[in-house]
Amino acid sequence: MLAHTFFFYFFSIISVGSALMVITSRNTVHAVFFLILDFISIGCLFIMIGAEFLGMIMLIVYVGAVAVLFLFVVMMLNVAEQKQSWFRGREKSAHIPVGLIVSIIILAEVLVVVGGWKYKSNFIKTEMLAVDGNLTNTHMLGNVLYTQYIHLFQVAGVILLLAMIGAIVLTYTKRQGVKTQSYFTQLSREKKTSIKLVEVDSNKGVKIDG
């Protein structure tokens, strides 16, 4: 029991601490690395409550894919050293009021949602749920996801597909004058069509591509 508690506090302290570091570190790339640390420790917390599938998916999706793209953007934009370190320097940033307003709105929304939350009168405690011990976490998740919530699951898939198509449409521009290799013509080249022996008279030279 002690070990469990110890590891719980270990991971939660790391996750809260790194979440704080995400918003306070001066170097944007460091902020992303702290975000990754946060994701990893949250994944570990998932595994600790027995949700091993969710924990691993957390690692694969967020750390393995999403955070890599974050890093890409941050590194490519070259915004590594933040000019406005509002919590240390005296300079004032124009982003602070906007950020404050957004976070206040989100806080208000969360308050409304949580405040209006009502448990059903026949609310079942989690430890009383009928859980089949023989089934693994993954099987149980699949049993619910593909039967009871199949429509929501598919709607989520369609939304993701829409987002993907939208991103492609927004960024796709047909550039003019770009020379690209046609794999078909490249692979169908043969010795006969690509090599030509030319008799050259002396002191005359020869025109290629004529």
Partner: peptide, 18 residues
């Protein structure tokens, strides 16, 4: 001998990029 062994392997190999 964990239930999600192959996911673990996949996760660790995807972390390797870091």
């Amino acid at each position: 001998d964990i239930n999600v062994g192959i996911l673990y392997l996949f996760a660790v190999s995807s972390l390797g990029v870091y």
